[in-house]
Amino acid sequence: MAIDFDGTLVEHRYPKIGEEVPFATDTLKMLIKDGHRLILWTVREGELLQDAVEWCRVRGVEFYAVNRDYPEEEAAHQGFSRKVKADLFIDDRNLGGLPDWGDIYRMVRDKLTYEALLEKEHSPQPSSKRGLWRFFNNK
Rank of each mutant, 00 (worst) to 15 (best):
A2Y: 07
A2D: 14
A2I: 05
A2F: 06
I3F: 09
F5I: 01
D6Q: 00
L9S: 00
V10K: 02
E11N: 12
H12S: 12
H12K: 06
Y14S: 03
Y14A: 00
G18D: 02
E20V: 10
E20K: 07
F23H: 08
A24T: 03
A24Q: 02
T25L: 09
T25F: 11
T25S: 00
D26Q: 04
D26S: 08
T27F: 04
L28N: 06
L28K: 05
K29C: 12
K29H: 10
M30G: 12
M30W: 05
L31S: 07
I32P: 00
K33N: 04
K33S: 07
D34L: 06
G35D: 13
G35E: 08
G35Q: 05
H36M: 02
L38W: 08
L38S: 02
I39S: 12
L40C: 14
W41N: 13
T42C: 00
T42I: 00
V43P: 02
R44A: 10
R44Q: 14
R44T: 13
R44V: 10
G46V: 02
G46H: 03
E47R: 15
E47H: 09
L48N: 15
L48I: 04
L49W: 03
D51R: 07
A52D: 11
A52C: 06
E54W: 12
E54N: 15
W55K: 08
R57M: 10
V58Y: 09
R59P: 04
E62H: 13
Y64T: 03
A65N: 01
A65D: 02
A65G: 00
R68C: 10
Y70R: 05
E74Y: 07
A75L: 07
A76D: 15
A76M: 11
A76N: 12
A76W: 15
H77F: 14
G79E: 07
F80E: 06
R82A: 15
K83P: 04
K83D: 06
K83H: 07
V84K: 08
K85L: 08
A86F: 02
D87W: 01
F89M: 15
I90S: 09
D91L: 06
D91T: 04
D92L: 00
D92S: 14
N94I: 00
L95V: 14
L95H: 05
L98R: 07
W101P: 02
W101F: 10
W101A: 01
G102E: 12
G102R: 09
G102H: 11
Y105I: 02
R106E: 14
M107L: 05
D110F: 14
D110A: 14
L112C: 10
T113K: 04
A116H: 11
L117M: 04
L118P: 03
E119P: 01
E121T: 00
H122R: 14
P124I: 08
P124V: 14
P124A: 11
P126E: 05
S127P: 07
S128Y: 14
S128W: 14
G131R: 10
W133H: 11
R134Q: 03
F135C: 03
F135K: 11
F136H: 03
F136R: 01
N137R: 01
N137S: 15
N138G: 13
